[in-house]
Design a protein around this nucleic acid. Structure first.
Lengths: 363, 363
DNA sequence: TACGGAAATGAAAGCGCATTCATCCTAGGT
DNA sequence: ACCTAGGATGAATGCGCTTTCATTTCCGTA
């Protein structure tokens, strides 16, 4: 335990050169069997484990991919965790968990390990830099890392931006993967209009600078236009945060404003708010979906558990992680080829449950 | 993008020595402000990101903790994932997910990043060695890594074994953390006996070599003894796998064997089997808990969703991850002090739900 | 204005491994 | 037995950074 053994120790003990020791690990077939055995035996005796750092330094590649995501104490995700009862807290996956899972699996398939780190919003030389220095390439959840940092880092290694549209001000040579926010919301809106025959609809948007929320609103607006309904220029309500509490408040505002002209359906830019709205509507004595249909967006697990179960649009977070790895691995493979930045959009699913008026459909 | 900039480049461009560049990142206060600015500016221009490998090599510490867990395609966890509908597949956390979450949070608090890797069961020089070479210390889920490998690795850096009792044949200088399997099962068994007045009980065990399952059986046996019931030497049924299918089969076997003497309660060594049993019992026209009580062990989220909701013992997997980090960080702090291997046991909770006869209790 | 000590900086020596290139064996061919 | 082509091995160098240790620069002070 005192001084950890190195190639030199193993080489000495087995009577070969360090080059041979190195070869035993890197390219076993290039060493005669007898020699190899000797070396491995010595290594075992000594408790030798190759230093990943040294190896990485010498071969300039780490065999590790990275993932940076927002700190859990981020208001957005925090509320998500708090949404479930304290008891359930640990039972449900956050987005980041799903992406981690997807990336880990995909990374493993390609022989990579995964380094994960939530960026503490403050930190000067944040974890991001640390991660960037230790991996061959990495993925970043949108708005986790300051654009300027990404600019610098992405010049050194491949970076793929996840979930969240390409930042026009950001580095333009970043790959990026997002989900079909607009398409999903549009499909869901059409479902309400066409299948349930609803016409008086309201849309509760998201925070000002969320491109995701904006894209969802656009999808909503597009569906209205296609249906010949009036095309709104902005969400009917635009809360500060996309939390349950804000969702509840939004619905109050909507009802107060509407008077007798209560909307037949309210679409929320995320599940959190929709669930908050469910509670608020219940308190007001309104039935969902009989009096008013409600839909969310995201497909969080909690949405399945509430009553009525929430109709929503599910994002394939797990696949997001997988695609990210694919992209990175591909970039790493065809090094030198400074190909065009790639941009992928993953399709989403409309999940019809009870809150829109569909029966108790599986899902 | 061609040649990534190094300290030398930054040093040259800013007219200082590489030592100063290094100091700017490592210990900014030891450099005059004007100098620092110069260096940072140059770094920005060049797109410089310190190499974690070089840093790690030189300072012999990585600032990274590791976690190795079994491959998802492991029969045990695989069935767990398959248990939920395909749709829910991504909605629920596996054990590993929860541990990852716990470790990531704790690691971040201590300024570490987390490197995760599922060990592909086969692999010669598995990922484990790779991980071991790149971290300051790491945690291993029981039975993920061959004992001999651990023996070697644990001589080089701190390793903590998770969930699963100390392996008597294994390295004796490993820290390890487990959950109170025996205590939990004992408490649950007592609940059935004392609170529900059940006396004809059966226990469905786990795979032969699972120390966890064994510990649970021991707890069951202990509770019987305390209650003055006959003390079994072995589980009434011991399936090959701890899957839903095996749980269903076990219950069939039990019923066929029992004839009219149907047990009043069946305790399963994990939730998976218990849930399988629920289905089997329903098919046989038996009501749970009226005709027979059923309990599981683990506290998987699915247990809350089945009807009747499953009474079980919940393991604090998340905390397991946190404690692991604490232990590792502590070891790393007091280096040199070859302290005694530490062994922690985390308490578990009995979660009373419907399947044991308790009302619709929260939890 | 000159002096002492602290703060700032530079020079140089590794950290542990991969990797040419050169050297040495080994085996096959005649 | 002798020569040669290849395969196995060794020597040496560098990867990019941290870290003493020595040196220089700076400040306040006499």
């Amino acid at each position: 335990m005192s001084s950890t053994p190195t190639v030199y120790d193993v080489a000495e003990r087995s009577g070969v050169s360090i080059a041979t020791v190195s070869r035993v690990y890197r390219n076993p077939d290039s060493v005669r069997e007898a020699t190899r055995e000797k070396v491995l035996a010595a290594a075992r005796d000594l408790g030798y484990v190759p230093s990943g750092n040294a190896r990485g330094l010498a071969s300039r590649s780490t065999g590790v991919l990275g993932l940076c995501f927002p700190d859990y104490s981020d208001p957005d995700t925090e509320s998500e965790a708090a949404a479930a009862d304290a008891d359930d807290d640990h039972a449900f996956m956050l987005y980041s968990d799903q992406i981690i899972r997807g990336m880990e699996r995909a990374a493993r398939r390609h022989g990579y390990a995964l380094l994960i780190a939530a960026s503490l919003s403050g930190g000067p030389e944040s974890l991001v830099a640390k991660v960037a220095g230790r991996v061959d390439g990495f993925a970043v959840l949108a708005r986790t890392v300051p654009t300027e940092d990404l600019e610098v880092i992405s010049r050194r290694l491949p970076v793929v931006m996840l979930a969240g549209p390409r930042d026009p001000d950001g580095p333009d040579h970043l790959d990026h993967i997002e989900v079909a926010n607009a398409d999903g919301q549009r499909a869901l809106t059409r479902h309400l209009i066409e299948d349930h025959g609803l016409r008086r609809l309201a849309f509760v948007g998201g925070v000002e600078d969320s491109p995701d929320a904006q894209a969802r609103f656009d999808g909503y607006a597009a569906a209205r236009q296609e249906a010949g309904l009036s095309v709104p220029r902005a969400p009917d309500v635009r809360p500060e945060l996309m939390t349950q509490a804000e969702g509840a408040r939004a619905v109050e505002a909507l009802l107060d404003r509407a008077g007798a002209e209560l909307p037949e359906g309210i679409l929320f830019a995320n599940d959190q708010m929709a669930i908050g709205a469910l509670h608020a509507l219940e308190r007001r004595g309104l039935r969902v979906p009989e009096d008013v249909a409600v839909t969310g967006f995201d497909g969080i697990p909690l949405g399945r558990l509430v009553r009525p179960a929430l109709t929503t649009v599910r994002q394939p977070m797990r696949r997001l992680g997988e695609e990210a790895v694919d992209l990175l691995v591909h970039r790493l493979g065809s090094s030198g080829t400074a190909a065009e930045p790639e941009s992928r959009v993953l399709p989403v699913d409309v999940v019809r449950r009870e809150s829109c008026g569909c029966g108790d459909v599986a899902g």
